[in-house]
Nucleic acid binder design. Structure first.
Length: 843
DNA sequence: GTAGGGTTAG
């Protein structure tokens, strides 16, 4: 039975389960007078649709820049000229700077030391400005406990309520910057109890503190409390803080816009920082077009754009995958005398790196160096990460030395980048060394370190190691997040334990950790892969395995239930590694039910699918044993996205002519993706068609992909490079290439001496060394009687002399072998895409 | 009260 067709049928339209979205751009929303220069409003702003426009990153508070020194507000150095008295710009005395130096040198654990020190300076220090200076500087240096003690000392000796209030706001702000919203709250409460905390400043500082910790709900609650119980009127800074908090906490664009509208109603005029924060919200959500409109709105309102504006806009543009546009923005800012700085460059460089354009990223580094912009901690780490990802470890380590030479010590980000790089290359020796080294340097591994290691070990099949790391992670008292769980789930999936993966998904949900689209995509993509492995419920015949089980049992007594679940599942994985399966078919139908349940959960939780979801569903179809199962999965695809469904279903049913217009529109959308994402989609679609006998259709898709440069440099007269293609895509491509070569011959040209077909040997495969592609191409060539054979010393290369290929292609039966046909073709007039396909295809 | 880096799916 066909379910009702949703009203919207284009890929850019709102998906069935999505609530209608309110207006997305705050401009023009309340009055028309302010919009005289505003760009014409586009009534069809891009929806928040899941598909190709939605952000691909799932991070909200991806980064918390705690402990980062704020830019100096007072000019010149802080060198306390002994006779200077007041530092005019800074409003603090030189005595304060002297005291600060002493406090910094003092030991952290010296009970009462700081208080004695400040007492000694007390007569020379001049009022709260000096204490504020010391407090803020301690904050800038990350001296949390000293800052707190300084605050307590100062607030005790201060008598004026206003002065005490200033100190409290500063302390709240400092604690917020250090990522301690909890302590900020305590200072805030104490200040209110003692009658000096009921100020707009204290409230604004606390809102900001929550914002920095990504706790936007708390920030909003404080904002409401301020207006309500505290009867205070938010000012510009308050509104800016709460808008910024909305963005940092990931409550989303709409909430930030609501705050903006409230601000306007309240008669508070937004300023540059308001817009900068709104831009940051766009950037985090990947709404680069909205960011651009916001930027234009600043222009029309006559609000200056500063380096923050440009850098945030650049970040939005890069996160939206428009790196080429980023370069335009960079030259525009220079024209307006806003000079790119180290943040500008690292933003754009990272954009290029994320788009896979690593060489261009590296050349931007050179440009930056030539401009005399010094690298800082972030840009060094970005550079190290790029070299690591490229596997260019010598250069990566060279940059590490350069960084240390310039006085910046390796931090956990440096190590994580290196661990990830070595991990991708399977360099477990280096990983082990690095992990010991970072501890020897007294650097504490964090959640990202553990996630990386677990992922690396699990992908490499080193389950014992993965388990040990997980144990250490639990012992460190860290809380798992969606990424770590997704890595664990992926490990299970990659080993065919889809049911266990689903169990772990439930487990994480019970733990209060929300799965995201990546988690779901992981499992969907694994559908049907379990055929290669099997559970062995009785592990007693595996000596090493029973030891692991014992360990797991001991854990059971003393550790939490959650840990146990994970350890149990992984314990089994250690034992069962690589047991071949017997009951594929039965398992698959069970799995199908699990996956269907998964789709329903996705709808329930309103998790937006993206293009990877679509590829995963298509890949799952390719692994279906029956056409019915595939059609069930495609039905789920239809509920997600009618356009993708329309194309996949149309081509599958053999309606090439009618479907092709729609397909072109779809491919235009896919073209906006980075090359890896785009090629994965083409690969998935082609594989599905190939698998179900639509070989001419598969070839049409593959040739379209080639035309659109989805796979770089696929073929020339002497060589066909298939190494980025899936098995179905590659096979369709072989046929197309040979036909092309054949026409060259029949035009009377001679072939090159040696003809090659490259498949690679599995280097690009997720499972190192897995050469499914090579095997399927070998079988294809043999099946069609093509004279290619495996090259000496290179397993991933098939070769044949040009003359031999010529002779074969001239053979009478060859053309017939080369031409592909579809199993199903439909008279285009009969074809109704909405009709249930099972009715059209009796199995 | 505002900007950039490290982890998960293909």
């Amino acid at each position: 039975m066909a379910s009702p067709t949703p009203p919207h049928c284009s890929i850019a339209s709102t998906k069935p389960y999505q609530p209608p979205q309110p207006q997305r751009v705050p401009v023009n929303s309340s009055s028309s007078s302010s919009s005289r220069n505003a760009p014409p409003r586009n009534p069809s702003l891009p929806s928040l649709g899941p598909d190709f426009r939605g952000k691909r990153s799932t991070r909200f508070v991806s980064k918390m820049h705690f402990n980062r020194p704020r830019p100096a507000v007072h000019g010149g150095g802080g060198g306390g000229g002994a006779s200077a008295g007041f530092n005019r710009a800074a409003r603090h005395t030189s005595a304060a700077e002297e005291a600060l130096q002493h406090v910094i040198r003092g030991r952290d654990d010296d009970e009462g030391g700081l208080e004695r020190l400040l007492s000694g300076f007390e007569r020379r220090l001049s009022g709260s400005e000096d204490y504020l200076f010391i407090l803020r500087e301690l904050g800038n240096r990350g001296e949390l406990s000293k800052a707190l003690r300084c605050f307590e000392f100062a607030v005790r000796r201060e008598r004026g309520v206003t002065e005490k209030g200033k100190l409290a706001s500063a302390a709240i702000s400092v604690l917020g910057r250090l990522g301690r919203a909890d302590l900020a709250r305590r200072v805030f409460e104490a200040a209110r109890t003692h009658g000096y905390g009921n100020t707009v400043y204290a409230f604004s500082a606390l809102i900001s503190a929550y914002g920095r910790s990504g706790m936007s709900e708390e920030a909003i609650a404080v904002f409401e409390e301020m207006k309500g119980a505290a009867r205070l009127r938010p000012n510009l800074v308050t509104y800016n803080a709460v808008i910024d908090a909305c963005g940092k906490g990931g409550v989303g664009f709409d909430r930030a816009v609501e705050m903006f509208e409230e601000m306007t109603r309240d008669g508070v005029r937004p300023d540059r920082i308001t817009f900068n924060s709104l831009l940051a919200v766009c950037s985090r959500e990947g709404f680069w077009e909205d960011a651009r409109r916001m930027f234009d709105e600043m222009v029309s309102r006559g609000i200056d754009r500063d380096i923050f504006t440009y850098n945030t806009l650049l970040d939005a543009v890069c996160k939206g995958g428009q790196v080429d546009l980023a370069l335009e923005v960079m030259s525009e800012m220079s024209e307006r005398n806003v000079w790119p700085n180290v943040v500008t460059y690292s933003t754009v460089i990272d954009g290029y790196a994320k788009a896979g354009r690593l060489e261009e990223a590296l050349s931007l580094f050179n440009e930056m160096k030539q401009l005399g912009i010094r690298l800082d901690r972030v840009s060094y780490n970005t550079l190290i990460s790029i070299y690591s990802r490229l596997g260019r470890f010598e250069e990566a380590l060279g940059v590490v030395s350069e960084m240390e030479g310039s006085g910046i010590k390796k931090d956990i980000v440096t190590y994580n980048a290196l661990l990830g790089g070595y991990g991708k290359q399977g360099r477990y020796d280096a990983i082990k060394y690095l992990f010991e080294d970072l501890k020897a340097e007294s650097i504490t591994p964090n959640l990202l370190t553990y996630s990386t290691l677990i992922d690396v070990y699990a992908k490499g099949g080193l389950y014992k190691e993965a388990m040990d790391i997980f144990k250490e992670f639990k012992e460190a008292g860290l809380k798992a997040d969606v990424v770590l769980y997704s890595a664990l789930i992926d490990a299970l999936c990659k080993n065919g334990l889809v049911e266990s993966a689903v169990a772990l998904l439930d487990e994480m949900t019970r733990e209060g950790i929300q799965p995201n689209v990546v988690t779901y995509n992981t499992i969907i993509d694994a559908f049907g892969k379990s055929a290669t492995f099997q559970f062995q419920t009785d592990g007693s015949n595996v000596a090493d395995g029973s030891r692991v089980i014992d360990e797991v049992d001991k854990e059971e007594v003393r550790d939490k239930e959650e840990t146990n679940q994970v350890m149990k599942i992984f314990g089994r994985l250690v034992i069962e590694k690589g047991q071949p399966s017997v009951e594929d078919v039965k398992r698959q139908s069970q799995e199908l039910l699990s996956i269907l349940g998964l789709f329903h959960k996705m709808h329930e939780l309103e998790i937006k699918p993206n293009v990877v979801t679509f590829s995963a569903i298509l890949n799952a179809c390719s692994r279906c044993n029956s056409f019915e199962d595939a059609s069930t999965l495609l039905e789920e695809l239809r509920l997600f996205d009618n356009q993708v469904y329309g194309v996949a279903h149309g081509l599958l049913m053999g309606s090439r002519e009618k479907t092709w217009v729609q397909a072109q529109a779809l491919f235009d959308e896919v073209k906006r993706m980075d090359s890896a994402t785009a090629s994965a989609f083409y690969n998935a679609l082609t594989d599905m068609l190939w698998h179900f006998g639509q070989r001419r259709g598969a070839q049409q898709v593959v040739l379209e992909g080639k035309r659109r440069q989805v796979w770089e440099n696929v073929w020339c007269d002497s060589c066909l490079d298939l190494h980025l293609m899936s098995s179905g895509a590659a096979q369709a491509m072989v046929h197309a290439w040979l036909l092309e070569i054949r026409s060259i011959i029949f035009e009377g040209h001679e072939l090159p001496k040696l003809m090659s077909i490259l498949t690679g040997w599995g280097k690009h495969s997720k499972v190192a060394g897995d050469s499914t592609l090579r095997r399927s191409i070998a079988a294809l060539l043999e099946g069609m009687g093509a004279p290619f054979h495996v090259a000496k010393f290179n397993l991933g290369r098939f070769v044949s002399p040009g003359s031999v290929v010529t002779a074969w292609l001239r053979g009478s039966g060859t053309l017939n072998v080369l031409i592909l046909r579809d199993d199903r073709t439909i008279s285009e007039r009969e074809f109704d895409p909405r009709q249930d396909m099972c009715a059209l295809f009796p199995s």
